[in-house]
Amino acid sequence: MNLRLGLGVTSYLVVALALGCDSSHKAIGVPAKTQEPSLWEIHELLAKKEFVDLTHSFEPGIPHWPGFPDEELETIYSYKPAPGLMGSGFFAQRYQIVGQWGTHCDPPAHFVEGLRTIDEIKPEEMILPLVVFDVHAAVEQNPDYVIRMEDVKAWEEKYGEVPKGAFCVMRTDWSKRWPDAKAMRNEDAAGTPHYPGWSQEVLTYLYETRKITASGHETTDTDPGLSTAKDDYTLETYVLGTNHYQIELLTNVDQLPEQGALAVVTFPKPLKGSGFPARVFAILP
């Protein structure tokens, strides 16, 4: 074997080992097809990542839309056996809540008759690329701030296009006011609430151009406080009218990177349900 041929074979072996292909592959220079990792291997990788819980614990008295009643919580069985109670000796509680309670999922049917109820949201829509638009600095200066196309375009200039099927979250740091209901509503002397919200141009762009799967925020509403004070829920109607779901009252958004994480969005499955508390978390890159 001459020197040039020997170096060529050596180079191929190095590349083959680096790519994980078989050095005995007959077509020198054409690497063997790599095998995708198994789901268990993917789980092993994910288990080493950092997880961030984006969900508030709920209880009676938490901030909520003012038209809803408070939660009623009753312990119906305790660990200590009670006379006359069959099955006593274990812990069980009864919860009476509206579907839109705490960190929760709003399915399309919440606002639009005939569209999907919460049980009709597919599992494939629950593990998503996570996009965070950070506007908290602007909200600090103006609590009535609504996200603008400049905010979204600035994100895309840094990271590329918002991926199809993403879960897009607006970071306002409003959840730091939790669980103070008055602070969350932030009413002025006339009783008008002041809190941030989405905008029509941004939502239209995300859902119709970028084809995202869902969106979420830290406040009680999609629409800003100045709009809800006039009973104007145009933006929430728009989102749910696209037959997509949204998540309200997220927390710990300040612990997320703007790009690269995964969102896992889960909730129970009441038949024909109008909404339900959700458990949402992120897996960081």
Score class of each variant (00 low, 15 high):
residue 131 V to K: 03
residue 208 E to K: 08
residue 173 D to Q: 08
residue 30 V to F: 13
residue 112 V to K: 07
residue 285 P to K: 06
residue 9 V to C: 02
residue 127 I to K: 10
residue 229 A to V: 09
residue 51 F to M: 11
residue 277 P to G: 03
residue 211 K to E: 13
residue 107 P to A: 10
residue 273 G to K: 00
residue 218 E to K: 02
residue 99 G to R: 13
residue 72 E to G: 05
residue 10 T to I: 09
residue 66 P to S: 11
residue 179 P to H: 08
residue 122 K to G: 04
residue 118 I to P: 06
residue 113 E to H: 13
residue 81 P to D: 06
residue 32 A to R: 10
residue 282 A to K: 03
residue 178 W to C: 04
residue 3 L to N: 11
residue 84 G to P: 05
residue 172 T to Q: 02
residue 224 P to I: 05
residue 180 D to I: 05
residue 199 S to H: 11
residue 163 P to W: 00
residue 251 T to V: 08
residue 133 F to G: 08
residue 154 A to S: 12
residue 156 E to I: 05
residue 184 M to V: 14
residue 142 N to S: 10
residue 126 M to F: 02
residue 154 A to V: 05
residue 127 I to P: 03
residue 57 S to H: 15
residue 140 E to K: 13
residue 71 E to G: 04
residue 62 I to M: 11
residue 72 E to Y: 09
residue 120 E to C: 00
residue 182 K to I: 04
residue 282 A to V: 10
residue 176 K to V: 11
residue 232 D to W: 06
residue 168 C to G: 05
residue 87 G to F: 08
residue 209 T to V: 15
residue 24 S to R: 15
residue 172 T to N: 00
residue 121 I to N: 02
residue 178 W to I: 10
residue 27 A to L: 13
residue 51 F to E: 11
residue 264 V to H: 06
residue 154 A to Y: 03
residue 268 P to R: 09
residue 263 A to N: 04
residue 151 D to P: 00
residue 212 I to C: 07
residue 272 K to A: 14
residue 235 L to C: 06
residue 50 E to F: 12
residue 122 K to H: 13
residue 219 T to A: 10
residue 48 K to P: 04
residue 246 Q to R: 12
residue 147 I to L: 12
residue 136 H to S: 15
residue 57 S to D: 15
residue 166 A to G: 03
residue 223 D to W: 06
residue 114 G to Q: 10
residue 110 H to F: 05
residue 104 H to F: 07
residue 175 S to L: 00
residue 62 I to P: 03
residue 149 M to S: 08
residue 135 V to K: 00
residue 41 E to G: 10
residue 243 N to Y: 00
residue 182 K to E: 15
residue 131 V to S: 01
residue 74 E to C: 07
residue 104 H to E: 06
residue 265 V to A: 01
residue 252 N to V: 03
residue 282 A to L: 03
residue 200 Q to K: 13
residue 281 F to I: 04
residue 32 A to T: 13
residue 177 R to Q: 14
residue 27 A to N: 14
residue 138 A to N: 07
residue 83 P to N: 12
residue 260 G to Q: 08
residue 33 K to V: 12
residue 157 E to T: 01
residue 206 L to K: 01
residue 276 F to A: 15
residue 7 L to G: 00
residue 242 T to A: 09
residue 156 E to F: 00
residue 214 A to T: 01
residue 240 L to H: 04
residue 268 P to M: 08
residue 270 P to Y: 01
residue 152 V to F: 01
residue 30 V to L: 14
residue 20 G to D: 02
residue 68 F to S: 13
residue 135 V to E: 02
residue 270 P to Q: 03
residue 250 L to A: 03
residue 98 V to F: 07
residue 131 V to W: 01
residue 39 L to W: 08
residue 145 Y to G: 05
residue 30 V to Q: 15
residue 242 T to P: 10
residue 51 F to Q: 14
residue 28 I to D: 06
residue 144 D to A: 03
residue 41 E to T: 11
residue 241 G to Y: 00
residue 252 N to F: 01
residue 236 E to V: 09
residue 56 H to V: 06
residue 240 L to F: 03
residue 126 M to W: 09
residue 152 V to G: 02
residue 144 D to G: 08
residue 32 A to H: 12
residue 70 D to W: 02
residue 224 P to C: 14
residue 214 A to H: 02
residue 255 Q to E: 15
residue 17 L to E: 13
residue 246 Q to S: 15
residue 66 P to H: 01
residue 82 A to R: 14
residue 141 Q to R: 14
residue 176 K to T: 11
residue 74 E to T: 09
residue 209 T to L: 07
residue 229 A to D: 13
residue 181 A to N: 02
